[in-house]
């Protein structure tokens, strides 16, 4: 039996798209819409007892400074992310030059990215341990005993220590993306600049940077949205103790520990809007730049 292409087309379109669309609606759109709905209620997450409470949850969030103080903890991950992006670019430029052994270094610096993240977080618990951690031991060996710290216990530095774990994990990823972008710049441009008498810094600033501007922007956006969603590292390493809770940890606690799903939904909506705004800004900037990454 030969079906006409017109019939086949209808069959293909429906059968190839049915399941993906059901999944998309069920696990992305339905939860998002319901999230907004529940954020206006006092739902406890279990029963059918859902009462509309208007803006009460949002008023709670915006009037209780606790929530935005927690957001400050996310800031550490963002600053760590900025350092990470800068380091990644630095190493990418180095590894993009003609250097012996550069492939070995690329593999080494990328290595943390492919390791299991939960295991990495646990590894750093053993590194940061106050009495038996390898970091304090290293400082001792180097004669820097005065620098020894309660890395995860001292609220003045523990967020930095956690943000560093995240940097350790992701730096190589950013670096490899940057290397890819650098390799797509034509050598002729550098050659021409050299003939015109440009020094290394000038050609970096006037050739390299403009060519990879989009990728840098992309990395910064990923950093910002990643920082807003920081969760696994602090959750595994401190469970939020000593003031290391992030916004998302707080949200999940409010939902699953305190059964205030209405309030948690409102927190999640606030977070979702923050991330969405960041990503939308990036899309707009990219479109304006003309070239899509």
């Amino acid at each position: 039996m030969n079906l006409s292409y017109k019939t086949q087309r209808i069959i293909i379109i429906t059968s190839f798209l049915a399941l993906p669309l059901v999944l998309l609606l069920l696990f992305t759109y339905y939860p998002s819409v319901m999230l907004v709905y529940y954020s206006f209620t006092d739902w406890d997450g279990f029963g059918f007892d859902v009462n509309f409470v208007g803006l009460k949850n949002y008023r709670e969030i915006f009037s209780n400074p606790e929530y935005f103080q927690i957001l400050r903890n996310n800031l550490y991950y963002f600053i760590g992310g900025l350092v990470q992006t800068a380091l990644a670019l630095f190493f990418a430029v180095i590894l993009n030059s003609k250097l012996k052994g550069r492939n070995v270094f690329r593999v080494i610096l990328f290595l943390p990215y492919i390791l299991h993240q939960v295991a990495i977080a646990i590894m750093f618990q053993t590194v940061y341990h106050t009495s038996y951690g390898s970091l304090n031991k290293l400082l001792e060996v180097l004669g820097l005993e005065a620098w020894k710290q309660q890395w995860l216990g001292n609220p003045a530095i523990n967020d930095w220590a956690l943000a560093f774990v995240s940097l350790w994990m992701y730096m190589g990823y950013n670096m490899v993306i940057f290397i890819g972008a650098l390799q797509s710049i034509s050598d002729d441009l550098y050659e021409a600049a050299r003939i015109d008498g440009a020094n290394a810094w000038q050609s970096f600033w006037h050739i390299t940077m403009p060519s990879i501007k989009n990728v840098v922007e992309l990395m910064l956006i990923l950093t910002l949205s990643g920082a807003l969603q920081a969760f696994t590292v602090p959750y595994i390493m401190t469970l939020g103790a000593n003031d290391t809770s992030t916004f998302l940890m707080k949200t999940l606690d409010v939902a699953f520990k305190f059964n205030q799903f209405g309030l948690a939904s409102a927190l999640a909506v606030v977070l979702l809007l923050m991330v969405a705004v960041v990503v939308l800004i990036q899309r707009l900037i990219l479109r304006e730049g003309g070239t899509r990454v």
């Binding site: 069920l26 999230l35 529940y38 969603q229 999940l252 979702l272 991330v275 939308l280």
Partner: peptide, 21 residues
């Protein structure tokens, strides 16, 4: 378009509701 918008929604934020789904 709906796929592109979906890519902007951070999934971990909707878990509160996905849980009940």
């Amino acid at each position: 378009g709906s796929y592109l918008v979906a890519a902007v929604i951070p999934l971990i934020t909707t878990q509160v509701v996905t849980y009940s789904v």
